[in-house]
Nucleic acid binder design. Structure first.
Length: 220
DNA sequence: GACCAGGCACATC
DNA sequence: GATGTGCATGGT
């Protein structure tokens, strides 16, 4: 009998189809996007990415050669530009110093080790680290974002306030550790989260409607 | 004009 | 370990 996360995955995939998510042109672009998207929407990030491209700076040395002021101006549309300038610089410095700016060397590194290293980088927390691991490095690392927690908590599948780590462990324990599945699942959860599991507890037409537990949605 | 969006570091208790 | 706060732009 399939677990709840497996059923969720199947239902969402059936309803929405493959999402082909995180359309970065290069792994490096995905890494940059992972920092810029922190607590912001993707539209704003696209503008920032475009401005980096226009400056020919969407590569490791390009970023590092920009002055702080110019880098800040380029990424300004993504918000928190002073903070993100430092975070971006820290990440790129790490990428260059430890891996020579070579994504293949990252791929050759063991997942747990690489994750620990990323978490040591200033400005890289669990979600950003997992996003980089999954979408840029293509490692089977589950991304647990605000939508993931919202969808699972609102349906009563996990308690409200479940921690990032606890939810990640729970989901990982119920799903095959495959990059393609983690990739697709996260994209599908964001989609259903945006469309049906938003601020108001309302689920009409939601692909997960039939999976409501006894007691229904958690209000608030 | 308020509210929200694909977090994180830091201070404080 | 849990909770609160600052960070900033662009869309609804």
């Amino acid at each position: 009998m399939p677990s709840t996360p497996e059923k969720v995955f199947d239902l969402l995939l059936q309803a929405y189809g493959p999402q082909d998510w995180w359309p970065g042109e290069t792994p490096f672009e995905v890494m940059v996007g992972a920092v810029l998207v922190q607590n912001t929407n993707w539209k704003n990030v696209e503008q920032a990415i475009t401005q980096l491209k226009d400056a020919g700076a969407l590569n490791p040395s390009g970023i590092l050669l920009l002055s702080p002021a110019e880098l800040q101006q380029r990424i300004r549309p993504a918000g928190y530009f002073r903070i993100k300038e430092q975070r971006l610089r820290s990440l790129v410095q790490f990428f260059v110093e430890w891996y020579g700016g070579d994504i293949e060397r990252m791929r050759a590194t063991e997942l747990r080790l690489l994750r620990e290293q990323l978490l040591q980088v200033h400005g890289i927390g669990p979600e950003t680290a997992d996003s980089i691991l999954l979408y840029a490095v293509e490692k089977p690392s589950l991304v647990v974002d605000a939508y993931t927690l919202r969808v699972f908590a609102r349906h009563g599948w996990v308690p409200q306030g479940t921690s990032y780590h606890a939810l990640q462990e729970h989901l990982a324990g119920e799903l095959p550790a495959k990059t393609e599945i983690y990739n697709e699942l996260h994209a599908l959860l964001v989609k259903v989260g945006k469309e049906h599991c938003g601020k108001t507890p309302h689920c009409e037409g939601c692909p997960l409607e039939g999976m409501l537990p006894v007691g229904g949605l958690v209000a608030g």
